[in-house]
Every structure is written in structure tokens, then in C-alpha cells.
């Protein structure tokens, strides 16, 4: 039970309380660029959620088995090559490895979707390749790395926690971009002072939305209390 509560808190935290867009400011380029219409915004959100889960699974596997200090695969290779049984630490390569993993997973997702779901591919259009340079994906990988490298073995994140974080982050991004697109569709009809038209007013609206999302602060501790009361 405690295990599920823990996962739920990570997911809710990533989706609402520490929303990727409004709290960490990652993924702003698509948030500004693709939030003109609700259907396109929803497509972008789904594509990001999809890629973020695949990329963070890959990056967790790579971090856990290859990159972290004393990781099994690299230590085994090192000792087989006759380097002795010392700890191998490849964390310095992590940024290179992550960006490579993200770029290749985007490429594979694109090929797979094009082959098996042509209508979906057509509706994603140019968004898929653009996701490679979406900061939200790399940010999720870095968050996972922070919870795998240099923490106590007991507190180290497993694949389940990594997946929940990335799914929560993707859902949070989708919520943010769809709300924004809904507001922007209405903004089309309103009279805005000339210099604020375009991105200016979008930033102001995003600021007000961020204020609203600050209201979620503390929801996690309240949820934890609720579940603790339910269990006892």
C-alpha cells in the first residue's frame, strides 16, 4: 500500500504540483509554438508523453546498468578486460548518452508510427522530430539520474518510479498545453493592446495559470495524510 501511495505522490507531484511547464519552465518552445488550436495541442501532448516514457525507460536502464558508479555491466566489462575489480564510474558521459538515447528513441518512434499507424503519423506531422530538442524529455532523464546516481541504495529509484515520473510529467505537459490552447482560441476574439499581441499576451496568461497552479502546493502532503489515515 505504501508503495502505491509513494508512486501516486510522485505522479501527482510531476503532473500538478511541480508541473513541468509552470514550475520548471521546461518544454516552453512547443508550449508557445503549438498551442494555437486544441486538437493540435492535444496531439503534441500525447506525442511528448509517449516519447518521454520511452526515453526515460531507456535512460533509467542505461543509468542503472551502465553509467552509475559501480554499475553491473560496465564493472563486468572492466573486470573481464583485466582492469581489476575497481568501481567504474561513467557518469561524466551521461549527458552524451541521454541525448543520444532521446534522439534515437524519437527516430524509432517516428519509424514505428509511420509504418503501423499512418493516420496518427499524419496528424503528428512535424512535431515528432521536433520533440528531440524538447527540454522536457532531457529534464525527465536528468531528474531520474538525480535519483539514481549518488543516493543510498535503499532510496534509489527503480524503473517503476522513473516511469511514473515521466508519465506524470507528460500528463502535466498535456494539461498545460491544452488549457493554454483553449484560452488562446478565445483570445483570438478579444482586443489586445497592439504590442502585447502574439507571444506577449501568451506569457501573461501563462503567468496567471502558473499562479493558479501554485494552488496545488501542499496537495501531496494532504494526500499522504489522507492515505495514512485510511490505512490505520
Amino acid at each position: 500500500m505504501e508503495y502505491f501511495v509513494n508512486l501516486l505522490l510522485i505522479g501527482v507531484g510531476a503532473a500538478l504540483i511541480h508541473n513541468f511547464v509552470f514550475y520548471y519552465f521546461v518544454g516552453l518552445c512547443p508550449f508557445l509554438g503549438v498551442s494555437k488550436r486544441i486538437d493540435m495541442a492535444f496531439g503534441m501532448g500525447l506525442a511528448v508523453t509517449f516519447v518521454i516514457s520511452i526515453a526515460s525507460t531507456l535512460s533509467w536502464l542505461l543509468t542503472y546498468y551502465v553509467l552509475r558508479p559501480g554499475a553491473p555491466v560496465s564493472s563486468w566489462i572492466w573486470s573481464t578486460l583485466g582492469g581489476g575489480s575497481g568501481e567504474v564510474n561513467l557518469t561524466i558521459l551521461s549527458y552524451l548518452v541521454y541525448i543520444f538515447a532521446i534522439a534515437s528513441s524519437v527516430q524509432f518512434v517516428e519509424m514505428y508510427v509511420r509504418k503501423f499507424f499512418p493516420p496518427l503519423y499524419k496528424s503528428f506531422g512535424i512535431f515528432l522530430p521536433l520533440i528531440t530538442t524538447n527540454c522536457a524529455i532531457l529534464f525527465a532523464c536528468l531528474e531520474i539520474m538525480k535519483n539514481v546516481v549518488g543516493v543510498e541504495p535503499a532510496a534509489m529509484w527503480g524503473l517503476d518510479q522513473a516511469l511514473v515520473l515521466s508519465l506524470g510529467g507528460g500528463v502535466g505537459f498535456t494539461i498545460a498545453i491544452v488549457i493554454m490552447a483553449g484560452i488562446r482560441e478565445e483570445l483570438e476574439l478579444s482586443e489586445i493592446p497592439e504590442p502585447m499581441r502574439g507571444p506577449g499576451i501568451v506569457f501573461i496568461v501563462a503567468g496567471i495559470l502558473a499562479l493558479a497552479f501554485m494552488g496545488f502546493a501542499g496537495v501531496d502532503s494532504a494526500l499522504a495524510r489522507l492515505f495514512k489515515a485510511g490505512m490505520s
Binding site: F22, Y23, F25, P193, P195, M196, P199, G200, I201, V202, F203, I204, A206, G207, I208, A210, L211, M214
Partner: peptide
């Protein structure tokens, strides 16, 4: 906090 960043950015962009 984070809302301030969005608001200041939007206002400076307008300016």
C-alpha cells in the same frame, strides 16, 4: 516564484 518569470517576460516583450 515561477509566475513572476512569465509575467515579467511578457511585459518586457510587450515593452
Amino acid at each position: 516564484l515561477s509566475p513572476g518569470a512569465f509575467l515579467v517576460m511578457g511585459l518586457l516583450l510587450g515593452l
